[in-house]
Computed example of a mutant assay.
Amino acid sequence: MTDDLPPGRSAGDAEPPGGPRPADLAPDAPAPAVRRGGRRRDQAVALGWLVAIWVLLWGDLSWGNLLAGLVIGAAVLLFFPLPPVTFGGRLRPGALLVLAVTFAGELVTASLHVAAVALRPGFRPRGAIIAVPLRVRTDLNLALTAEVISLVPGTLIVDVDRDRGVLYAHVLDVRRPEDLADSRERILAVERRIVRAVGSPAEVRRLSPEPVDRRNQP
């Protein structure tokens, strides 16, 4: 199933006063300059996450694992530097709580559904790959949405089109066309909760409902 491409600005649209906003820039546009202090802060946050992942992989919180995680994390950041990703959003505690609670609920219900499918005798579930264009095409939003979707059983991100902002997801147990539409809407709902939790005001405004296509109306 193929979805429409993400809505883009046409060539005749006028730019807003003061030039285009950072959230409206194309994904391949050059990233804004990152100050040295902000770069060091981002590296410190990345190192903290790498250490946490290292400890979780070993399953043992000890001084030795912490020290090894620091060394491995520092080596990864030194020899495999990633392009700077600036965070221009705003943390909203209420929306973060909604995101966490909703994710926990979906994790439980999806796990029960996958278990029921696996234990059903003689049943062969049908899968499908759908293309879901996101409304906010930043690298951070693409990564966060893909991670949250992949953590829920029954759905897996198989490919990402960074230039067009499209996620390709494999969904399990597809019985009718409506299931594909429901899966697409669920992924867009995850994106909506993430943007409302950590997105900038300009990104939140881009979540407004799209106008109804009159060509599909009788």
Rank of each mutant, 00 (worst) to 15 (best):
G59I: 11
R90V: 07
R184Q: 13
E185R: 15
S62Q: 14
A128Q: 07
G105A: 12
A197F: 01
R175S: 04
I187G: 04
R196T: 03
L97M: 10
A104P: 00
P84L: 01
G64W: 15
E147A: 12
L151V: 04
I149H: 10
A169C: 13
L66E: 06
R196L: 12
V171H: 06
G89M: 10
H170I: 03
A181G: 08
A116Y: 01
A115I: 08
F80M: 12
D173W: 13
R186H: 14
V136M: 06
V160H: 14
P93T: 04
R120S: 06
R192T: 13
I129Y: 12
I157Q: 11
L82S: 10
P83W: 09
V85G: 00
L56S: 02
R126Q: 12
L96C: 13
V190W: 09
L140F: 08
P81R: 14
L82H: 07
R192L: 00
V152Q: 09
L140A: 12
L134E: 05
A110V: 05
D60N: 14
I72F: 13
V148C: 06
L57H: 03
T145F: 02
P201Q: 15
V171A: 13
R192Q: 09
V98H: 05
R92L: 04
V136W: 06
I149R: 01
G105T: 07
F87P: 00
A197T: 01
L57W: 09
V136C: 02
H170Y: 06
R90I: 00
T138F: 02
S200G: 03
V174P: 05
V76S: 06
L67S: 13
G105K: 08
V190T: 15
L151Q: 03
A115V: 13
L77S: 01
A131M: 09
R124K: 12
G105V: 11
F79T: 12
V148S: 04
P93G: 03
R120H: 07
R137Q: 15
R135V: 04
L172W: 07
V71M: 02
L96F: 02
P177E: 08
A189P: 02
A75L: 15
A169K: 04
F79N: 02
P201G: 14
A143R: 05
R184C: 10
P177H: 01
F87D: 04
G73A: 05
D161W: 10
A128R: 08
A100H: 00
G69V: 09
L142F: 11
L119F: 10
L119C: 07
A189I: 01
I149M: 11
R193M: 14
D163V: 09
I157S: 15
I194T: 04
V158N: 13
T155D: 06
L167W: 11
V195A: 08
G64M: 15
A197L: 02
D159T: 02
V174Y: 13
V136I: 10
V166E: 05
L67A: 15
A146V: 14
A189D: 12
T145K: 01
R186N: 08
G59V: 11
A202S: 08
R196G: 00
V174A: 11
A131P: 10
F80S: 08
I72C: 10
S183M: 11
A75E: 03
L119S: 05
R162V: 14
V195G: 05
A189W: 01
G73C: 08
S62R: 15
L70E: 00
G89K: 02
R92I: 01
V148H: 10
R124W: 12
E191F: 12
S150P: 12
